[in-house]
Amino acid sequence: MAKRGNNDKTPLIRRILAIIGVLVLLGVNGIFFTKAVRGTFDTPGAFMTAAVSTVAIPIVVWLFVWAFSAVTGKRTVASPDPYGRNEKDESEDEIKAEDLNIEESTDKSETSSVPGKHDRISNGKVDTVIFDIGGVLADFCWEQFIKDKGYVEDTVNKIAEASIKSPAWDEFDRGVLDTMEVIQGFVKNNPSMEAELYDVFSDLSGLLRKRERTIPWIRALKKAGFKVFVLSNYSKQAEDANPFMKEFLDEVDGGILSYKEQIIKPDRKIFELICERYDLIPGKCVFIDDLQRNVDAASDFGMKSILFESYEQVDRELSKLGVTCKIEM
Rank of each mutant, 00 (worst) to 15 (best):
Q144T: 15
E251L: 00
V228R: 09
I215H: 05
P216E: 07
A168S: 15
S235P: 11
L207T: 04
L231N: 05
A162C: 07
K260P: 06
S235M: 09
A162G: 04
K260F: 00
G254D: 10
K210C: 00
L137Q: 10
D203Y: 05
V136L: 08
S258C: 05
S163C: 03
Y234T: 14
W169T: 02
V152P: 14
I183R: 07
R213M: 13
N190C: 06
G150T: 05
G135H: 01
S192C: 01
T179N: 13
D173G: 15
A241V: 06
F140H: 12
L177V: 01
A195K: 14
G206K: 12
Y198R: 15
S163Y: 07
D199L: 08
F145K: 10
F248C: 07
I183C: 01
K147D: 07
V136D: 04
F201T: 03
V156K: 11
G150K: 03
T179W: 04
P167S: 05
D240N: 12
S235I: 03
Y198N: 14
G254V: 10
A224D: 06
L137K: 11
T179Q: 14
E251A: 07
I270A: 01
Y151L: 05
T214D: 08
K158M: 08
F244E: 02
R209P: 02
D139Q: 13
E247Y: 06
E251D: 02
I256A: 05
S205Q: 09
F140V: 12
A160T: 12
E153A: 12
T155Y: 06
W169E: 04
D139E: 15
P243M: 05
A138P: 10
N190E: 07
P266M: 09
Y259T: 13
A138V: 07
I263E: 04
T179P: 13
I133N: 10
